[in-house]
Design a protein around this nucleic acid. Sequence first.
RNA 1: GCGCUCGUAGCUCAACCGGAUAGAGCACUCGCCUUCUAAGCGAGUGGUUGCAGGUUCGAGUCCUGCCGGGCGUGCCA
Length: 561
Amino acid sequence: MKQQIASLLEAATDQLKSEGFIPADHPIRVMVDNTRDKAHGDLASNLALMLAKPCQSNPRAVAEKLIAALPDNQIVDKVEIAGPGFINFYLAGESSAEIVADILNRRAQFGTNDSGQGRKVQVEFVSANPTGPLHVGHGRNAALGDSLCRLLEANGWQPTREFYYNDAGAQINNLAISVQSRIKGLTPEDDAWPADGYRGEYIIELARSYMKGDQVIADDREVTAKADADDLDAILEFAVAYLRHEQDLDLKAFDVRFDVYSLESSLYSDGLVEATVKQLVDNGFTYEDDGAMWLKTTEFGDDKDRVMRKKDGGYTYFLPDVAYHKAKFERGFDRVINVQGADHHSTVTRVRAGLQALKEGIPEGFPDYALYQMIMVMRGGEEVKLSKRAGSYVTLRDLIEEAGRDATRYFLVSRRADAQITFDIDLATSKNNDNPVYYIQYAHARVHGVLNRLAEQNLSYDEAAGLAALGKLDLDAERELMTQLRRYPDVVTAAADALEPAMIANYLKDLAGLFHSYYNSNKMLVEQDDQRNARLVLSKAVAQVLANGLNLLGVSAPESM
RNA sequence: GCGCUCGUAGCUCAACCGGAUAGAGCACUCGCCUUCUAAGCGAGUGGUUGCAGGUUCGAGUCCUGCCGGGCGUGCCA
């Protein structure tokens, strides 16, 4: 709708340019916004304010010219100049009624668009190494990443959900040694316990399972335990599969699934890491110093050059990252987005620098990043420090079991990614009704509650009659509801552009609020046929949009609560 | 020290690319279930948008400098 108004204004500016009122070479950026106050109409533009100076005129005069030059159309009922020179648009009543018909026709498809044109986008998220169960931080990553995929899909993109992890290397060896130590009956208190060993209780379970000869099946691998305490390789292989399986359970409980799993080890075994190094060396972006090999990342905007090959001959973490993203680029995605905690934000510059140094024509901004801030976990009024190695943390699964999937997902995805959030375990698990997710779900359930009462009260419902009678709904609350419904497609677009699912959550809270208020002061199941049908049609549309939006957040829309 | 980021009501958060009188929830006070689900609604209290400048017709939003929090600045990932 914003777009349609904008194109009307563009036509008007073209007209005024040809008349010479607006300088022909002046760039025009037409902005149409929702109004905050309904006294200002439905949509408003500040165009006249921005054009006043180049036209050497005052804003209100420019506004008059623009309005006079607006093409004839069906969607605008009335146009006004207000304040310093805003142009306020009042949409024709029929267009509000049409939105309701559109919602009921398109149902789950309402709000989606084809701007992605079926292009392929890869979203890499979670990407936790198999060294322990997932915690709240991974939960934020999973909720954000999955919701982004849903959003992009709603905008016509084809998402691939990818999970990248390390199944070899120092930390994995450390994991295997920790398991072996538990098998031998050692505890972190013993002197013989490995220095950086994983101390968590889950290692005990893992060790027990290995010695029992269990078979584990994860989404991307399966293995049967050898039950040999001396075979470190076998322990390692089992431990990785075991913990991957545990993570699968966590993610399934969260309703998050992946299409592709990528292994850091395969980058080595496929020769991609070596090939990347060679390319960087051949391109002259490396040098040796102090026994290490450095990459001149400063040539691509970094603060200082970075070590890529350590003294001991091993590579630092970002080198395989560069190789991995080179491969991602070559896989032909139209867009690649990495969901990462802001504690890793320094890798953004490094990885992009490495990709530029390859001189392969990879775009400078590749890949995209969706960074989210850290979560502080509170319990009993105190901060809980998250540390895998120390084993002191709150698992995602515990959280889901205690607070529920919907409440947990909603909480994690309803705050802007750049906001640091505090997760108060006591609050989240106290089963109170403070969580806004219930507020939204309840609005949805209420509509279905009303529909279920129809037969009981011997009343009929005729959708076509309701749509025809929509124009007769003239309460402020009804108009506001239709206005809010009309905004939904714009929100879906804006949230995807900003990579911010939280915008959907905020929208839904507002829509639910309007509905609760309307529901409370007006009866739906009235005797009068037209009014009853029209109100039910409107309510069904509200429920549909609530369900569509909740689905983008990965939250269910129950019909009764 | 330097870099990134955040700072909005007592608390948790909104405010769409700079737009009109900065909005919700929680908490607190007072009302609303003989009527479709009270996990709800209505009313009230609560603000110098961290501070000081600047740009602009217009700044919570952009720029500069301070103050405060978080993260980074490892041959850890």
